[in-house]
Amino acid sequence: MGIIEVRDLCFYYGSFQALDRIGLDIEKNRITALIGPSGCGKTTFLRSLNRMTDMIENVRVTGRVIIDGEDIYRPGADLLALRKKVGMVFQRPNPFPLSVYDNVVYGLRVHGLRDKRRLEEKLVRSLESVHLWEELKDRLDANALTLSGEQQQRLCIARLVAVEPEIVLMDEPCSALDLAATANIEDLMAELKKRYTIVIVTHNMQQAARVSDFTGYFLLGELVEIGATHQIFTTPRDPRTEDYITGRFG
């Protein structure tokens, strides 16, 4: 039994079916990687886990996604509480055009924290957990857009962990970064999984193999196979997975 249980999840954009009867469990404090070719539904699946897909017009969902024992698609589900619990890191680093300080405390303020001292405590802790505190402690007033790409992505992760989510969804978080920055962010993920459950979508199979504990392979809106990462990459059960990971396809 996982922290996230997905049962028979189907997802439609208008009349187009993007996900077909997805069922899987995601385990607590582990990194689960989702791989597959472009358009296979892995990003749609990721975004359906905190209902960011609600922002798109004309979507329809059937099936259940149970997080901490509650179906997030039940009528009247509390979306704000859900997104506080299930946060997201995006493909491109996307800090607000505000100061470093205002970026990190954005979520805290949104959730009603006003006390200056507590905001600062959490700011320090969040920046420390992404190893930005030493670099930025004298530049908290600087506009976040002046930081490097890697710093921006770390800042976005700090902004997220400040609200203390349980689950962190990562949508190709390294695709806009260079190799060194990618390695650093991957190290960071390994640290973060002690406190958070991480689900990461990646185009990069080596990255999935390096960082994840479990790997799921999506193809044409279907979950072909999911299992322990070393098993998927050494002895896949489904021939379609084997074609993909050996590079015969995709």
Partner: peptide, 19 residues
């Protein structure tokens, strides 16, 4: 992207608009 991020941090639409 700013809207998406704001929502993903659990803000309401109004908070997103005003902040």
């Amino acid at each position: 992207g700013f809207r998406t991020v704001s929502f993903s941090l659990g803000s309401t639409k109004w908070q997103m608009v005003t902040r």
